[in-house]
Computed example of a mutant assay.
Amino acid sequence: MERKVGTVVRGIRCPIVREGDDLSQIVVDSVLEAAEQEGFSLRDRDIVSVTESVVARAQGNYASIDAIAADVKQKLGGETIGVIFPILSRNRFSVCLKGIARGAKKVILMLSYPSDEVGNELVSLDQIDAAGINPYSDVLTLEKYRELFGENKHTFTGVDYVQYYGDLVRAEGAECDIIFANDSRVILDYTKNVLCCDIHTRARTKKILKAGGAERVCGLDDILNASVDGSGYNERFGLLGSNKSTEDKVKLFPRECTPLVEDIQKKLLEATGKHVEAMVYGDGAFKDPVGKIWELADPCVSVANTPGLNGTPNEIKLKYLADNDFADLSGEALQKAIEGRIKDKKENLVGDMASQGTTPRRLTDLIGSLCDLTSGSGDKGTPIIHIQGYFDNFTN
C-alpha cells in the first residue's frame, strides 16, 4: 500500500546544553529516545539538524564587550569611526554596539533608510513618498529626520532604534552623531575609518569604501575573527551571526561544525543502520508579510552539513503536468502517467517547462528554513529537528 504521508518534521527536546557538553551524543540520544517514545523509526535519508545556538553554547564561544572594544580599537584606531548599515535589533546588535562604542572616542552612526538590510523599517515608503525624499541620493541629519518623520517605533518591538542606538553609544562614553544614507561613500565625509555592519552585502560595501579613499575598513566579520585575551571568536564570520547573551556579553556564531555533523551521522548509522543526513542551521530564509522582515540576520543558513544535503531540488511541477501534458487524463490513468514522468525525469531539469515554479533554491536553505520555523526562537525547547520523507516524491 502506498504511503499517505509525505514530509514529516518533528521538534526534538533535549537537555539544556552547557559549555563542554558532548553535543553529538546529546543529539543522537535525544533523537533515539524521541523515536522510542513516539513510535517512529529512522529511515535512510532522514535529516537530523541542530540549531547553531546550542552548538556555540557547547563550544563556549562567547565574548565580552571589552574584547569587542579592544579589537575595534586596535583595528580602527580608537578615535572617530563610522559605523554603517547596522541592522535594527536589540538581540543582534545592541551589545556589539556597546563594545564598538567603548573602542572609540566618537561614533558616526549611519543608518540605511527607509529600512535596514533585513527589512526592519525606520520609516515606511509611504512616509518617504509624502516627504518627497529620494533615499537613493538624499542624506539626512538626525535633525532633518526628526523634522520629517518624528519618532518612529518598530512595528513589533516598540523601540525607537534611532534613540536607542544613540543612547547606547553615549552610555559608553563616546560621542555620537547619527546620519541617514544609503550610499556607503557618504561616511567618508565624516571619517576615513569605517566599520561596515551589513551582512550579505558586506564585501561590496568594503570594496566601494576602499576605492573611495577610506584608510581603514573592517566588517563585523573582521572583528573577533581571532581570540582577544582568551575570548571566543569566529575565524570566518567574526561578530556576524552573534546574539546577545547578557548585557555585556555576546554568543558568537559557532566555529567549525563539520566534525559535529559527521559524528552525528556516524553515531546514528552505528545505532540504527540508517544513513541519516545531518546539519547545523542558523536563520532560515523567509519574509514576514506584515513586518516585511527577512529572517536573514545570520551570515548563512547552513553552518555545516553532510554531503547528501548539497545541491538543489530537481522536481517536476505536478499541477503543470495535470493541466498540460495530461489534461485529458483523470483517475488512475492520470496518476500512472504522472508517476511515469517522475520516474523518467532528467537529472537536470533547468529550463524544462515542467519544472517551472519549483523554486530551485539550495537544499540547505530550504531545509534550514523548515528547521528554523519548526524550532522557533523562544521557549519551545526543541533545538534539534528530525525531518522524514523530505526527499520522497509522488512515486514513493
Rank of each mutant, 00 (worst) to 15 (best):
Leu366Asn: 10
Val350Asn: 08
Leu373Lys: 14
Ser377Gly: 15
Thr364Gln: 06
Thr364Val: 15
Pro360Cys: 08
Ala354Phe: 01
Gly376Arg: 05
Leu370Ser: 04
Leu373Val: 15
Gly368Arg: 00
Leu366Gln: 14
Ala354Gly: 01
Gly368Pro: 02
Val350Tyr: 09
Arg362Asp: 10
Leu349Tyr: 09
Leu363Ser: 06
Ser355Ala: 15
Gly351Trp: 02
Thr374Pro: 07
Cys371Met: 07
Leu373Cys: 13
Asn348Thr: 11
Ser355Phe: 03
Gly357Leu: 06
Pro360Lys: 06
Thr364Trp: 03
Arg361Phe: 12
Asp372Thr: 04
Gly351Arg: 05
Thr364Tyr: 05
Gln356Glu: 09
Asp365Ala: 10
Glu347Trp: 12
Gly368Met: 01
Leu363His: 03
Leu349Met: 09
Leu373Thr: 12
Thr358Asn: 04
Val350Thr: 13
Arg362Phe: 10
Met353Val: 08
Thr358Phe: 04
Ser355Cys: 10
Glu347Pro: 07
Asn348Ser: 13
Lys346Tyr: 08
Arg361Tyr: 11
Met353Asp: 12
Asp352Tyr: 00
Glu347His: 13
Gly351Ala: 07
Val350Ile: 10
Ser377Leu: 12
Glu347Arg: 13
Val350Glu: 12
Thr359Gly: 07
Asp365His: 14
Pro360Gly: 05
Arg362Leu: 14
Leu363Thr: 08
Gly351Ile: 05
Gly357Asn: 02
Asn348Met: 09
Leu370Pro: 00
Leu363Phe: 04
Ser377Lys: 14
Leu370Lys: 00
Leu366Cys: 12
Asp352His: 02
Thr359Tyr: 15
Thr358Ile: 02
Thr358Ser: 02
Thr364Phe: 06
Leu370Asn: 00
Thr364His: 06
Gly368Ile: 01
Leu370Ile: 15
Cys371Val: 10
Ser375Thr: 10
Leu349His: 03
Asp352Phe: 01
Gly357Ala: 03
Ser369Cys: 07
Leu363Asp: 02
Asp365Tyr: 05
Cys371His: 07
Arg361Glu: 12
Thr358Glu: 00
Ser355Trp: 05
Ser369Asp: 05
Thr374Gly: 02
Ile367His: 00
Asp352Thr: 06
Asp365Pro: 03
Asp352Trp: 04
Pro360Asn: 03
Asp365Ser: 15
Asn348Ile: 08
Thr359Met: 13
Gln356Leu: 09
Ser375Arg: 15
Gly376Pro: 05
Cys371Ser: 06
Arg361Pro: 04
Asp352Pro: 05
Thr359Cys: 12
Ser355Thr: 10
Asp372Leu: 01
Thr364Cys: 13
Asn348Trp: 10
Gly378Pro: 00
Asn348Asp: 15
Ile367Phe: 04
Ser375Pro: 01
Thr374Asp: 14
Met353Gly: 02
Ala354Tyr: 00
Asp365Val: 05
Thr358Ala: 01
Pro360Leu: 06
Asp372Glu: 11
Gly357Ile: 05
Thr359His: 14
Ser369Arg: 06
Arg361His: 14
Val350Pro: 03
Ser369Leu: 08
Asp372Gly: 06
Cys371Lys: 03
Arg361Ala: 11
Ser369Phe: 09
Leu370Val: 15
Arg361Asp: 12
Asn348Gln: 11
Thr374Leu: 14
Leu363Glu: 00
Thr374His: 11
Gln356Arg: 07
Leu370Arg: 04
Leu363Lys: 04
Ile367Met: 02
Asp372Lys: 09
Gly351Pro: 03
Ile367Gln: 00
Gly378Tyr: 08
Lys346Arg: 14
Asp352Cys: 06
Gly351Met: 04
Ala354Asp: 08
Thr364Leu: 00
Ser375Cys: 11
Glu347Ala: 14
Gly376Lys: 08
